[in-house]
Simulated assay, not measured.
Amino acid sequence: MRTIFKLYRAFLASSLAFTLDTLYLNWNTTFPAVTVCEIYNGEKNWDISENYFGVGRDHRIDDYVADITFFSGKCHTCSYCEDIACPTNFEELISNFRTACRQLITNCSWIGEPFDCCSEFRPLNTEYGLCYSFNSLQTEPYSDLKFINNRETGPGSLRFALSEDTQIHVHPPNDIPYMMSEGVIRETVLWGSSKEIIFNAVEILNDPAVKIFSPEHRKCRFYNEIEERGENNECQ
């Protein structure tokens, strides 16, 4: 009986393993998601605020709106609302103070082929506010992940232009960028500058038999096992 128990414990401890497959050169490799988030521009926001609230506004409103529409992890100015009437129409504020996709992202191409930017950079709500994500499974409608690279296509190459200061996140298609994201490339691109990001993508595939094991045992969930999209620890 003790021997059987030891074998069972050994099976639980080593029933899942990572191995390298040299056939990867024949596979399609999925391009990661690329999410573009506009960042705060004080001069631009001052002009918008003046048009939206008027010249005679309490200027503390400007700081409050900046905290709400370009969230950085904490609302430092929410205490102002004890003294002033802070607006609570958050969706309208975001619509007015953040740049729409058509004005923000232009001149898109995939491996040299132009495409309509906002057909593929789709709205994605994040901790940073409304962003636009390319090749993401978290957008609605979902991306169909047709952006792949293999021996025939060569390395994937995504190019686009931006009209505002932004932060770019390169991450797995299943993920949503957030403040404490791990394993994510995060780059700030200021207006008038250029940025080239070169990376190596490693695709992780699961044998169908992995689904036999419970999520608690494998310590991850497949995409169709997650009720709330965006949950961490997803199986690839």
Rank of each mutant, 00 (worst) to 15 (best):
P172C: 14
R122T: 13
G192K: 02
I168L: 07
A100S: 08
L145D: 12
H59G: 03
N26C: 06
G230R: 03
S163T: 14
G42C: 12
R221H: 13
R98H: 01
I94D: 10
S136K: 01
G129V: 07
N206T: 14
I48V: 06
P155Q: 01
K219W: 05
N233M: 05
S14Y: 06
A66V: 11
S194L: 03
G156M: 04
N96H: 04
L93A: 11
V65C: 01
N224V: 00
H59N: 08
R221D: 13
T35S: 15
G56W: 07
C81M: 06
I226N: 01
V36E: 05
C37L: 03
D165H: 12
T139W: 02
N51C: 03
V170I: 10
I84R: 01
V170C: 03
Y223T: 06
N28R: 04
E127G: 08
P114Y: 01
F160C: 00
R229N: 06
A10Q: 14
K219E: 15
N41V: 04
N125R: 14
H59S: 07
H171D: 11
M180H: 10
N28W: 00
F160M: 00
R98W: 01
E91A: 15
F134D: 00
Y80G: 08
Y80M: 07
F121K: 08
R159D: 13
E152S: 11
D47C: 01
D207K: 03
Y128C: 11
I48A: 01
T166M: 12
C131Q: 04
N107T: 09
N206I: 03
A10M: 09
N224I: 00
L20V: 11
Y52D: 09
V65Y: 01
V36G: 05
N26R: 06
S79L: 05
K74S: 15
G56T: 11
Y223I: 09
Y52M: 09
F213P: 12
R229P: 05
F222R: 01
L145I: 12
W46N: 14
R159M: 07
R159A: 11
E113W: 00
F90W: 04
I176A: 14
V34E: 15
L137I: 10
C117R: 01
R186Q: 15
R2Y: 05
Y64W: 12
